[in-house]
Lab assay of single mutants.
Amino acid sequence: MIFPGATVRVTNVDDTYYRFEGLVQRVSDGKAAVLFENGNWDKLVTFRLSELEAVK
């Protein structure tokens, strides 16, 4: 189960963010908004829950 605050990895091989890890900001309607941070940039991207896996 994916909840806000969880760290997730993108599993969709066709996505630009494949294998990126980010922090879930919100979850609704089968989608999750994931925040990616890297140095001087932040990006908030929405994914279907089926495209994400929780990082242990």
Rank of each mutant, 00 (worst) to 15 (best):
1 M>Q: 12
1 M>L: 13
1 M>F: 10
2 I>E: 01
2 I>T: 02
2 I>G: 01
2 I>C: 05
2 I>N: 01
3 F>H: 10
3 F>Y: 12
4 P>R: 07
4 P>H: 04
5 G>I: 02
6 A>W: 08
6 A>D: 13
7 T>P: 04
7 T>L: 14
7 T>Q: 08
8 V>W: 00
8 V>C: 02
8 V>T: 01
9 R>C: 07
9 R>F: 05
9 R>I: 09
10 V>K: 00
11 T>H: 04
11 T>G: 04
11 T>K: 10
12 N>S: 08
12 N>H: 05
12 N>I: 06
12 N>K: 13
13 V>N: 06
13 V>Y: 07
14 D>H: 13
15 D>G: 05
15 D>H: 15
15 D>T: 11
16 T>G: 08
16 T>R: 12
17 Y>T: 02
17 Y>K: 03
17 Y>P: 01
17 Y>I: 02
18 Y>G: 04
18 Y>S: 03
18 Y>D: 02
18 Y>I: 02
20 F>L: 11
21 E>L: 12
22 G>C: 03
22 G>A: 03
22 G>L: 04
23 L>Y: 07
23 L>D: 03
23 L>R: 11
23 L>W: 06
24 V>G: 00
25 Q>S: 06
25 Q>D: 05
26 R>V: 12
26 R>C: 15
26 R>L: 11
26 R>T: 14
27 V>Y: 02
27 V>L: 06
28 S>G: 09
28 S>Y: 14
28 S>Q: 11
28 S>E: 12
28 S>I: 11
28 S>K: 10
29 D>T: 05
29 D>H: 09
29 D>Q: 09
30 G>I: 03
30 G>A: 04
31 K>H: 13
31 K>A: 08
31 K>L: 13
31 K>P: 01
32 A>S: 02
32 A>V: 10
33 A>P: 00
33 A>G: 05
33 A>F: 13
33 A>Y: 14
34 V>T: 01
34 V>R: 00
35 L>G: 03
36 F>L: 10
36 F>K: 00
36 F>H: 00
36 F>I: 08
37 E>Y: 11
38 N>H: 12
38 N>P: 08
39 G>P: 07
39 G>Q: 08
39 G>R: 07
40 N>K: 11
40 N>W: 09
40 N>C: 14
41 W>Y: 10
41 W>F: 12
41 W>D: 10
41 W>V: 12
42 D>G: 14
42 D>H: 15
43 K>M: 13
44 L>V: 13
44 L>D: 04
44 L>P: 06
44 L>Q: 06
45 V>M: 07
45 V>C: 09
45 V>P: 09
46 T>C: 14
46 T>M: 12
46 T>Y: 14
47 F>N: 03
47 F>I: 09
47 F>R: 07
47 F>K: 05
48 R>E: 15
48 R>W: 15
48 R>L: 15
49 L>M: 07
49 L>V: 10
49 L>N: 04
51 E>A: 06
51 E>M: 05
51 E>G: 03
51 E>V: 05
52 L>T: 00
52 L>R: 00
52 L>S: 00
52 L>W: 01
53 E>P: 01
53 E>T: 08
53 E>D: 05
53 E>M: 08
54 A>Q: 09
54 A>M: 13
54 A>G: 07
54 A>E: 09
54 A>T: 09
55 V>H: 03
55 V>Y: 05
56 K>E: 13
56 K>M: 13
